[in-house]
Nucleic acid binder design. Structure first.
Length: 583
RNA sequence: GGGGGUGUAGCUUAGUGGAUAGAGCAGCGGUUUUCUAAACCGAAGGUCGUGGGUUCGACUCCCACCUCCCCCA
């Protein structure tokens, strides 16, 4: 019999199948198999309890009936009834060995996971900065969480389009173009700090429009000219955008992020007429106080609170562009799912968008598409308020990264002075950026979290350095043994010690964690798992010597090390974190 | 005013209706002639914001209230 990748799923299916032909069980029964605490076993089926209650049967007797009928292969599973009617399932050392031999490397894990989201065409919209501005700490979470999510989906078999929806068509361009012209600023010259300078110009321009009504008028004129396609303003706008894109790329390179599709809001500006036409003809939109809006009568709030798709002055807005974007994604990518990764303040907007798109697509007979808003909380400073620099500006990502790398470098230089300068630099970069990234991903995305250099760069606790250290130690074992991971396992004897079994147990739970992480697109579940795995490995490492006299013992421990390393590296890769062989 | 989020140990936090609420930091006590001690082991620390309710079982679901954050007018 082939070894199941997702053991909990396999057991669930098996329980269900057996129960369906069993007296005492009927339609409402679900076995509810899930990982449990080590002291109870590997998995626990809780479903008998509520079912017995519902059908007025004795839960323990019912559990016994089910257990008798299961006929699980005893060399692989042991099961027993506990407490009021839980069924605890344990795995045998032989099963662990079989599973670990089957799912031996990243390709095998991916193969196992690939059916989870097979056939799903999903567009993930993340990062999405505005041009003419530098990326700052407010852009961190969307980029980091979005990247992790798209990697997870891809790993699990989805056909993913990574879409960076750039804010390149805002009203800020009126002021900016005015300021550029006033200052005689030449975009064709070399500007090492271009975006900083544009930001300064924009700031000065904004102030000017506040002080001087003539300037405000001028800014409006520049915007109108741009929107009408004035050659000079278009050229300025294009230049600003292309230079902004270059700056974004340098950040993406640091964070190892790339996109399949990079389109600005401007791309959709000739596509909004169709939106108006279709929403009007399907009677989803209506005029309200001069604006074109969509109400959702079935919704407690959006029955009254309008989704404004054309303002009373005729201007389009985010809603219009987002609707056009949804249509484009449906038609260009045949998307069945669209994911937007933004902060939680936009929940209303995306809920209205979702409702509108669902009704609109249905009315037009388009293929239905699931819109998901993956939102996240705020990054707080140590004072408990949204993080800022001392002067009150958001922290630039560029500066955040240099500080992270610099801080990591200091630690590396102190802890591992024997490494070459190049090695220290490389380690500092991976540890620094990995730390920032992991700090963000390891917490529930819907919570706000407190940013702390000390905590994220600490080598204790649920941090990137701790996980990276575990991978470095694993590499060291193989280096010392003169083997590659995966080699030297043939003579493996049966897992024996408590720490070996604990490690094996954790390793086979990887698929359950993938499933959990994917369900709500919450990467912190994967982080918690990797942290726990590292902890169990560290205990094992401390208790059980790998390179040892007995060939059978050494072989089986090498196998555990190779799988732990593979799981850690695969998991970290899914989070977008680069791993190390030494640190 | 309406809505959303949040509240768990001194601090930062995890927790899928399931058994005795888990971690990490800080503080306390141990472990190294042994594959990286950036580690490991142990003890201590909790009326899970408050009050009700549903349930065999509630940090988890429902209702009310309170705190802080945010969104919409």
């Amino acid at each position: 019999m082939a070894v199941a990748f997702h053991i909990a799923q396999f057991l669930e299916d098996h329980f269900q199948k057996v129960a369906s032909s069993l007296e005492g069980f009927g339609d409402g029964f679900t076995a509810d198999v899930r990982p449990t605490e080590p002291r109870f076993g590997v998995f626990q089926a809780n479903g008998v309890l509520p079912y017995a209650k519902k059908t007025k049967q004795n839960p323990r007797a019912l559990a016994q009936t089910l257990l008798d009928a299961l006929q699980l292969p005893t060399d692989h599973f042991t099961a027993e009834i506990a407490g009021p009617g839980f069924i605890n399932i344990n795995l045998t050392p032989a099963f662990y060995a079989d599973w670990l031999k089957t799912f031996k490397d990243e390709a095998a894990l991916q193969q196992g996971a690939s059916h989870i989201d097979e056939g799903l065409n999903v567009v993930v919209d993340y990062s999405s900065p505005n041009t003419a501005k530098q990326m700052h700490v407010g852009h961190l979470r969307s980029m980091v969480i979005g990247e992790a999510i798209q990697r997870l989906l891809r790993f699990c078999g989805a056909n993913v389009t990574r879409d960076n929806h750039i804010g390149d068509w805002g009203t800020q361009f009126g002021i900016l173009i005015m300021a550029i012209k006033d200052a005689g600023y030449n975009l064709d010259e070399e500007h090492p700090n271009l975006l900083e300078e544009l930001e300064a110009l924009y700031k000065a321009g904004t102030q000017k429009t506040k002080d001087d009504p003539a300037a405000l008028e001028q800014a409006r004129n520049e915007l109108v000219k741009l929107q009408q396609g004035d050659a000079e303003n278009m050229q300025l706008w294009e230049k600003i955008n292309s230079l902004s894109y270059e700056a974004f790329e340098s950040i993406y390179k640091l964070f190892n992020v790339a996109f399949d599709c990079v389109l600005g809001e401007s791309f959709y500006r000739d596509k909004v007429d169709r939106i108006y036409k279709e929403l009007e003809e399907t009677k989803l939109s209506e005029e309200s106080q001069g604006a074109l809006v969509v109400f959702h009568p079935e919704h407690p709030r959006f029955a009254k609170q309008p989704f404004i798709i054309r303002k009373s002055d005729g201007a389009t807005n985010y809603a219009t562009t987002d609707l056009a974007t949804a249509l484009h994604r449906l038609e260009a990518f045949e998307a069945n799912e669209m994911i937007n990764v933004t902060d939680g303040r936009q929940q209303d907007h995306f809920e209205q968008l979702r409702l509108t798109v669902e009704k609109w697509f249905a009315a037009k007979g388009y293929k239905p598409c699931k819109l998901r808003h993956v939102w996240f909380g705020t990054i707080l400073g140590e004072d408990g308020k949204a993080i800022k620099t001392r002067s009150g500006e958001p922290i630039k990502l560029k500066e955040l990264v240099s500080e992270a790398v610099e801080r990591a470098y200091k630690v590396v230089a102190e802890k591992s002075p024997e490494l070459t300068e190049d090695e220290k630099r490389e380690i500092a970069e991976k540890v620094g950026i990995g730390a920032v990234r992991y700090a963000d991903l390891s917490q529930n995305r819907t919570s706000d979290y407190t940013f702390s250099w000390e905590k994220m760069l600490s080598f204790d606790g649920n941090t990137a350095p701790y996980l990276l250290y575990a991978t470095a130690r694993l590499h060291a074992i193989f280096r010392k043994a003169g083997l590659k991971p995966g080699e030297g396992e043939d003579a493996a004897t049966s897992f024996e010690t408590e720490t070996e079994l604990a490690l094996a147990r954790k390793l086979v739970l990887f698929p359950s964690v993938l499933e959990l992480t994917l369900e709500d697109l919450r990467p912190h579940f994967l982080c918690t798992y990797l942290f726990e795995l590292s902890g169990i490995f560290s205990s094992f490492y401390n208790a059980d010597k790998v390179v040892t006299e007995d060939p059978g013992t050494q072989a089986r421990r090498l196998m555990l090390c190779a799988r732990t390393l593979n799981t850690l590296e695969t998991g970290l890769k899914l989070l977008g974190i680069e791993t190390l062989e030494r640190m």
